[in-house]
């Protein structure tokens, strides 16, 4: 039996960089005043949950070899729709969230059909679709901000600790639960393996009999529905929503993209994990708590992203240099001819 040697080298660190990133942040946290308080952990993970939904959507699409730029506006639309249906139409929150998710499914379906049936690159489709969603939001709200008003019951539930001894809000725990369910689906089901195969090599996937169009469309549906659902929950959790949410400051879309890449998801598809993205997003959320000034947060996040992309590029360049070559040819010859020492 061949046993793999366990080595802590550059490759190992790179493979588990998301976890190392989190460990470093947690160690720095020890030296940060009032970092390890229940309130801080609850607030940081709760406020960071929205980008976890965006990261989830972005990662699943990127694994399948596509980009979904609608994630941010989809979550905002989900929030506005949920708050609007509740405060204006008086529907119960559960119905509002379901309707918001359904709208996400429709948008995801449209994205999927345009990408698979009309063969338009996903970047273009989702770039256009995000403005369609934004326009729809303006029509729906008239540019106004929507809030929960004085109905704090569900807001308080999402803000409160679901498990009394854990310093995490119900919103964060729901987010984490869904992310782990998606992780299980992607890792242990045929559909999940098909997504990796479609993203890794579309031609091979087709030869293997995978209905790649269906898989791709489903991935877009999962992404948009998750973002709409997460956005709806976030609307209630934070108490209000507006169309321009995330357009100023550090864009949630950029954070999701950064976390996806830092988390190890391959830009060309076929490789990645929603849990790694989730871990990176937790690290980024805590990083914000350490570097309190926005300018420092932007700087540190950008440096980490650049470092990861540089490493990926150098690795890819080295790999491409050796593709098709046999660096061990001389050694093999010596072994075959029995001249090896």
């Amino acid at each position: 039996m061949n046993k793999k040697k366990f080595k802590i080298n550059a490759n190992f660190i790179n493979n588990y960089r998301a976890y190392f990133f989190l460990i470093i942040i947690m160690i720095i946290g020890i030296f940060t005043p009032k970092f390890y308080t229940a309130f801080n952990i609850n607030a940081v993970t709760g406020n960071g949950s929205l980008v976890m939904w965006l990261g989830l959507g972005f990662t699943v699409c990127l694994i399948a070899g596509h980009m979904d730029l609608t994630v941010m506006y989809m979550s905002t639309f989900g929030a506005l729709l949920c708050l609007g249906l509740h405060s204006i139409n008086g529907l119960p929150y559960i119905v509002c969230i379901l309707i918001a998710t359904l709208v996400g499914v429709i948008v995801g379906l449209a994205n999927g059909i345009l990408v698979t049936k009309f063969l338009i690159p996903s970047f273009i489709v989702t770039l256009g679709m995000q403005f369609v969603v934004k326009g729809a939001m303006y029509i729906y709200t008239g540019g106004a901000e929507l809030s929960i008003g004085k109905d704090y019951a569900f807001n308080e539930f999402l803000n409160e600790k679901l498990i009394p001894f854990l310093p995490f809000s119900a919103y964060f725990l729901i987010t984490t639960l869904i992310i782990f369910i998606i992780m299980i689906v992607f890792r242990y089901t045929r559909f999940g393996r098909n997504v990796y195969m479609v993203g890794g090599n579309l031609e091979t996937a087709w030869l293997a009999g995978i209905k790649s169009d269906r898989v791709t469309t489903l991935v877009f549906i999962i992404s948009a529905a998750a973002c709409a659902f997460g956005g709806a929950l976030n609307g209630v959790y934070s108490g209000s929503a507006s169309i321009t949410m995330g357009e100023k400051g550090i864009s949630p879309l950029m954070i999701a993209l950064t976390a996806t890449i830092v988390g190890g998801t391959a830009i060309q598809g076929g490789k990645g994990s929603v849990v790694s993205t989730w871990v990176t997003l937790i690290a980024i959320a805590f990083l914000k708590s350490i570097f309190k000034k926005t300018e420092m947060q932007v700087l540190v996040i950008a440096v980490i992203l650049i470092a990861c992309v540089c490493y990926e590029t150098i690795t890819l360049y080295r790999r491409n240099k050796t593709v098709g070559t046999r660096p061990n040819l001389h050694k093999e010859y010596l072994e075959e001819t029995g001249k090896a020492k």
């Binding site: 009032k34 308080t37 309130f39 801080n40 607030a43 940081v44 406020n47 929205l50 934070s238 209000s240 507006s242 949410m245 995330g246 100023k248 400051g249 550090i250 949630p252 914000k288 708590s289 309190k292 000034k293 926005t294």
Partner: peptide, 21 residues
């Protein structure tokens, strides 16, 4: 604290400020 006109960042700062007591 300066949230740079972002609502969610300002929410985060409110939490941070509360945490500092």
């Amino acid at each position: 604290y300066d949230p740079n006109w972002d609502q969610s960042t300002q929410d985060g700062y409110v939490d941070q400020a509360i945490n500092e007591d």
